[in-house]
Design a protein around this nucleic acid. Structure first.
Lengths: 336, 336
DNA sequence: TTGAAAGCGATACCAA
DNA sequence: TTGGTATCGCTTTCAA
């Protein structure tokens, strides 16, 4: 039924003009009929609608957007949609955006910095604002997002050019360590993020908390951001420090991998090894035993980012760094 | 640094015209400078670029799209981004679209049919094609997507108006049942999808396979599409049929819930209860024991959908129903 | 109730 | 190397 180009002829776009001609009216009348404006005769309207349908007419979003400057589209850039943490944030952002009638274009950078730039290049001319995770240098970010509101998530340092939502896990991690200490643990290890050269902020929170309890903070090993990475890291850690009885991890995925590995090597959790993750993924409730975690409110994270975009876009009353914070708190499962 | 409206004045858009005036050149020269065309003096170009920067100029995507009819945006509609199955499909679709330089606007309908229509209404004027899961009646779907390519996923019946990717799990389910039978199981239950009135196609595959082995196919109970739903359903099933020693489930999420419930009630998996899911989620590898599943190639699913969109969009050589199939195959973990 | 004309903000094709 | 003009497809005045 849909007519397609038969003999190599380009299927030239059906415009409002074609509909007008076919219905024997002017373009503006077509516009009225299509947009449900009043001031139009019922019969005429029907005739126009029929003609439009017959021709398979679809208004150009560009032409329409050009005239009624209203549609807002934001670009959401995340490193990996398959990582449940980002998925949760994305879902929250999508929901908050939908509530405002905005569209969200999602870009998955596959965790590669070079993809980020490519994405930004493309995005730059396609969205009204950008929200996301970026690992590329700020000056490049700045270069590619000129004049556009940008809200960074979970990126600690930033220039005045950007808004950024800070993840504050200091208290949560402290509570986690306190919980472990109270349970009698004295040798607490950490499976940190290994990708970056310097230790993560989460590790710094851990060392600070450990210090306040007189715990040795040096039982740390880097882990790849995956379940397998967590398993491998746990093995490495225990090989070096067999006396470790509890671990904190950079995130829940790593923790889940550690859980699995512990089971393999016959360490019962939490009896022989207590495990506390970070992020508070819904996924944590599905594993055995249910994961304890320093949990983040991902819904709030996504909603906050979108809220700030809204403020930036209208220019009214943007939130300051003090408000752009999501605090993590210890949520106990059964793994610690 | 970003100038915003100070005294209630609308922050009128900076156009190419403003830049031209500020740089003392014509609009076309500005366009040349911005788009890296040749035929422009280096000095002039720099002057224009500086002016643009100073003014915070950003080209209108609508105006640009209007004249260079090239950008393609597709709408991806999924019921729930938090459901790992849809996430996997979405990730695959995103990747395939990116490879083509397309943009993907993602809409989460929160599993509600009425949201689907609202989404379609909005989407209709914002994208060039639609890919996704829909549960609303076909005629409504048709109404809201007039003249636009639509690729449905995993929806069995469909009018000629749409393309649809069929999920064929017949052989996979048969293999699953064969595997269970070979292991000595004779009482095999199924935790089906409960939302719909009629039993699912997956259940039909199960009954067909069961029949060929002389297995009673009536040990079925509906489950909510969640881990908790799986647990509840398993409880119900075992209460009615305590002699069941193996189950198939509508999907992996339900299976994972069943796994957890089995553990709670002291049934060891797979010794006391064999479990086989459906979907083959990556998540299945994280639970204990690793889930056996009738696995779908979600990457292919997403890629295939995007491929068909491409064909539909250009009008060349669209795939037929026979090609639009993704077959599921049994992938054994340790749960059966 | 309808239509003519004037934009919306950019790019393309000429001519200068 | 530049600038004028037409054009993309649609909506919005303003007249008729």
């Amino acid at each position: 039924m849909v007519s397609s180009s038969v003999s190599g002829t380009e299927p030239r776009r059906v415009t409002i003009h074609d509909v007008a001609r076919s219905a024997g009216v002017s373009r503006q009348t077509v516009s009225r009929a299509l947009n449900d404006k009043g001031e139009i005769d019922g019969t005429t309207k029907q005739r126009v609608l029929d003609a439009a349908r017959a021709l398979g007419y679809r208004p150009s979003r560009f032409a329409r957007g050009l005239v009624r400057q209203d549609t807002t589209t934001i670009g959401l850039v995340i490193p990996d949609l398959l990582n449940p943490f980002f998925t949760e944030v994305a879902a929250a952002a999508l929901e908050a955006a939908r509530a405002r009638g905005w569209h969200v274009v999602v870009y998955d950078t596959a965790d590669r910095a070079e993809e980020e730039l490519g994405t930004l290049q493309v995005i730059g001319s396609q969205v009204d604002a950008v929200v996301g995770y970026f690992s590329c240098p700020e000056d490049e970010l700045e270069l590619f997002t000129r004049g556009m509101p940008v809200v960074l998530i979970g990126r600690e340092h930033h220039s005045a050019r950007f808004s950024s939502i800070r993840i504050d896990g200091e208290e949560g991690v402290h509570a986690a360590v306190a919980h472990l200490v109270a349970a009698g643990h004295t040798r607490i290890g950490m499976l940190d993020h290994q990708a970056r050269a310097e230790p993560s902020v989460r590790y710094e929170w851990f060392t600070a908390a450990a210090a306040s309890y007189g715990i040795d903070p040096d039982l740390v090993v880097g882990a790849d951001q995956s379940a397998d990475g967590g398993g491998t890291a746990l093995r490495t850690l225990l090989a070096a420090h067999p006396d470790v009885t509890a671990i904190l991890t950079f995130n829940d995925i790593i923790a889940i991998g550690a859980l699995r590995e512990a089971r393999r090597i016959g360490r019962s959790v939490p009896r022989d090894l207590a495990v506390i993750g970070f992020d508070g993924l819904q996924l944590g409730a599905l594993v055995e035993p249910p994961l304890s975690s320093v949990a983040l409110d991902t819904r709030r994270l996504g909603a906050l980012a979108i809220d700030q975009v809204a403020r930036l876009l209208t220019g009214v009353d943007p939130l300051t760094a003090d408000d752009l914070v999501v605090r993590a708190e210890l949520r106990l499962g059964e793994s610690a």
